[in-house]
């Protein structure tokens, strides 16, 4: 077992994102003191202005890469970090802002900004792993704080984190949730979506929105076919269903493109 004379230094970085994922760390109210005891929170601007210089043992990276400056900065973060863990759909799949990847960004800029010449942006919003090596990806929009604790915990104890990559359906069935698709005819993305949220939406009678991105072997084509033929879901709605927070995750991107008129 690792001896812990020195607490590992933890840094939290932000790129294009809403802050919700790093907020999950502050949301660990009951566990926060234990976390602060186990790691040295060295760089976390959302929590404190105090900064401990790098390098850092663990970096949690939130957000996607959307500007040339981001693309440069993530390389600096990588250099300063021993373990780099991306947190949330922005960092792991490009996030909701990756919807622009399906459109012409120049057009947006000219429409939205009065002085478009000041806007410097990349054509696509991309996940961190497209730019630097990532040691672990934690999915979710937002991430599940218990899963975040599990990743930190596993790191501290030198073990593999228990973060399954199978479908949401296993969580539903273990919990005893009724299948909303079979019993109510509600379109649900659970069968193609990675577990981790605790099957939150189906537990409240709603279909899954795929916040945790594609499971490890998603058959999106079969699910989409069933939605169309049995649940009468129109093609436009199919495109929208796969274009959520994880729109640019490859299986979802391909499926939405297949249904675009």
């Amino acid at each position: 077992m690792p001896t812990r004379r020195q607490r590992p230094k933890l840094a939290v970085w932000k790129f294009a994102s809403c802050d919700g994922c790093q907020l999950s760390l502050l949301d660990c109210e009951d566990e926060l003191l234990a976390v602060a005891d186990a790691v040295e929170i060295a760089y976390f601007p959302e929590a404190t202005r105090a900064v401990v210089r790098g390098p850092y043992d663990v970096s949690l990276v939130e957000g996607s890469i959307t500007t040339p400056h981001d693309a440069e900065r993530i390389r600096q973060v990588r250099k300063a970090s021993r373990f780099l863990v991306t947190i949330g759909a922005c960092a792991t799949a490009g996030g909701i802002q990756a919807l622009r990847n399906f459109q012409d960004v120049e057009e947006f800029i000219t429409l939205v900004y009065a002085q478009p010449q000041y806007i410097e942006t990349l054509e696509r919003s991309t996940p961190i792993a497209e730019h630097v090596f990532v040691d672990f990806e934690l999915r979710g929009c937002p991430i599940n704080k218990m899963q975040l604790l599990e990743v930190v915990n596993a790191y501290l104890n030198g073990r593999k984190p228990n973060i399954p990559t199978y479908s949401v359906c296993l969580e539903c069935k273990r919990q005893g949730n009724l299948c909303v698709m079979v019993a109510h005819g509600t379109p649900c993305l659970g069968p193609v979506t990675q577990a981790g949220c605790g099957a939150l939406c189906p537990a409240y009678d709603r279909g899954c929105y795929a916040c945790f991105g594609p499971q490890d072997s998603p058959n999106t084509g079969s699910l989409a076919h069933w939605w169309q033929t049995r649940l009468d879901v129109p093609r436009d709605d199919l495109v929208r269903a796969f274009r959520g927070f994880n729109a640019y995750a490859e299986p979802f991107r391909k499926e939405s493109e297949a249904h675009e008129q």
Binding site: Y166, S167, C169, L170, K173, R174, C179, G190, P191, V192, Q215, S217, P218, N219, G221, S222, L223
Partner: peptide, 12 residues
């Protein structure tokens, strides 16, 4: 080609 590998069959 139809199987979702979602595991529902084995759970139920």
């Amino acid at each position: 080609s139809r199987c979702l590998t979602c595991a529902n069959c084995t759970m139920v």
